[in-house]
């Protein structure tokens, strides 16, 4: 893996160039986020005048104090938390139950082919936004948190990822358990699930991020802004821009918006993701590689 280098002057120069480029890439990802944090701790005048770079100017907690008393923000925050918890239970439960029988050969499970084709058909083809919206409406789910969870209850991409993990489990484990008279439910719970834990962790984390980050579902299915989850609430902060047809207005709007408070909102809404990020990093790398480089 490690190429052997002769340390010539040329190689040194190449090293410097490589480090500079890598640093540029890394900083490009880091600075905008640090800048956001810095703005959230600066005073509004400095932020509006674009004086804040990576350190707060006239450091203050005032935007966070303002944020603490913003009831709609926290209401939306809690709606998002509720959604992640409910979504996680529904999605991961259905993922496991759907992926396991699909991972069996059609010899072991006679209906496997039919089910598999149905699942793939559902993955490839969809009625689209409007017909789905009408079904949700007919079921009287509009304005309910379930409208954000049930239409995507079976995440097919993740089902396939998990199915491949189940398939990689040695058959001998199952056969041994069968001789002891274990049922398929038991075999799934006691043998298969512990073995595929890393993949399960990956899809679980994807699910959390997916639910936390989704703003669009609520835009379509929730009418009352008071019931918006956090991302939709945040999305609405910048939405005024979308209807503007006059360049001057666009500039004006940028000036009057409460930059520091908005920055604080974004920082707080991102914190939960940052908290699970270290765990995610451990798993998503293996998840991607398992999912995409199948030998």
């Amino acid at each position: 893996m490690s190429p052997i280098y002769v340390h010539t002057v040329k190689s040194r120069v190449a090293d410097i160039i490589i480090w500079v480029l890598l640093l540029a890439f890394t900083l490009s990802c880091l600075i905008p986020l640090v800048n956001l944090v810095a703005i959230s701790f600066s005073d509004n005048a400095a932020a509006s005048a674009n004086l804040v770079s990576i350190f707060p100017v006239n450091p203050t907690f005032s935007s966070y104090e303002k944020l603490l008393s913003d009831t709609q923000f926290w209401r939306s925050f809690m709606i998002s938390v509720e959604r992640v918890v409910l979504g996680l239970i529904v999605n991961v439960g259905l993922m496991i139950l759907t992926a396991y029988p699909l991972s069996k050969s059609s010899r072991q499970f006679r209906g496997q082919k039919i089910y598999m084709n149905l699942v793939i058909f559902a993955m490839l083809f969809s009625g689209g936004l409007i017909p789905t919206f009408m079904v949700v409406k007919e079921l009287h789910l509009l304005d309910s948190i379930w409208a954000l969870i049930l239409p995507g209850a079976v995440p097919i991409g993740n089902v396939i990822l998990l199915m491949n993990a189940f398939r990689a489990v040695p058959k001998s484990l199952e056969e041994a358990a069968k001789i002891d008279g274990a049922s398929q439910w038991r075999i799934l719970g006691r043998i298969y699930l512990p073995v595929v834990l890393p993949t399960l962790a990956t899809v679980t984390l994807f699910t959390i991020v997916g639910h936390w980050n989704d703003y669009f579902g609520a835009l379509v299915y929730i009418n009352k802004a008071a019931n918006y989850p956090l991302q939709t609430y945040i999305q609405q902060l910048s939405v005024e821009v979308q209807n503007i047809t006059d360049p001057e207005k666009l500039m004006e709007l940028a000036k009057i918006s409460d930059k520091t408070l908005n920055a604080a909102k974004i920082v707080v809404s991102t914190l939960p993701l940052l908290l699970i990020y270290p765990f995610m990093q451990k798993y998503f790398v293996s998840g991607i590689v398992v999912g995409s480089v199948k030998e």
Partner: peptide
């Protein structure tokens, strides 16, 4: 409910 029925739409 959420994939096949909407297809009729």
């Amino acid at each position: 409910i959420f994939s096949f029925i909407p297809m009729f739409g």
